[in-house]
Design a protein around this nucleic acid. Structure first.
Lengths: 125, 125
DNA sequence: CAGAATCCTTTACGATACTG
DNA sequence: CAGTATCGTAAAGGATTCTG
């Protein structure tokens, strides 16, 4: 890789981190990787996300050009969300984390238990 | 990649996302990539982080086994934080995002401006 | 200088109810 | 069913002060 120390000052770097710095952005992007999807089905794929927060998250991603929204009029309304080309470019980096979690997730959980056991009584969130 | 749809249900996956789902974890990890560092210097490398939040973040990462803390007694106290072996394994995935930001960050910012201009007046955070 | 303690503000998130 | 509106809570982040 090729970033120098000013990396953290670069606003694009901050933008990338900020994109992930919330509970749902990456999860929703990930849930869309298998193709466009209606909001209801999305909630099923994800689990534990309220309709309101899902809508907010999708708007945020749409605003950033990562997700696009297609509305087919009618009643009941039918809407589908899918990744844009730009959004798809984020899948590989996200997947790198997924792979990391499968390899090292246990170590993190073990470290936390060790920390809790060693008298690090107030284990920070 | 090799994750099936149950990926999102796997608690290790959630753990990985949660590690990034806050403003500072990834930034601090990244700032430590060039070697161990004292808190004061870390704040300089990062910029915009308060001492309190830096300490909290370091504790959190230490608890997860990603960072270790070495205290050399004395007065004034001298402390250094550095990545553990486990922490270093996270650098590659984080860097994937950094690289992504350099390639596509402009597109996201452009999309946001477009969105704001098109009457998407309330541009969500 | 490290960092704990305190106080305060903001906001992310959740639950619920309502509209088209 | 999609989406908005409203309310409430919990937590994150910031500023400040104080200590060893």
């Amino acid at each position: 890789m090729s970033h120098d120390q000013s990396f953290l000052a670069d606003c694009r770097a901050r933008l990338a981190f900020d994109l992930l710095a919330n509970t749902w952005n990456s999860v929703v992007l990930w849930a869309l990787k298998d193709g466009p999807c209606r909001p209801g089905a999305l909630r099923g794929r994800i689990g534990g996300i309220s309709p309101k927060v899902l809508t907010e998250t999708l708007r945020r991603l749409e605003c950033g050009g990562l997700v696009d929204r297609r509305a087919y009029g009618g009643s009941p309304p039918r809407v589908e969300y899918g990744l844009t080309a730009l959004g798809r470019t984020l899948l590989a980096p996200i997947d790198a984390f997924g792979a990391w979690a499968f390899e090292h997730g246990d170590e993190v959980m073990a470290a936390r238990e060790r920390y809790a056991g060693e008298g690090g009584d107030p284990p920070p969130p």
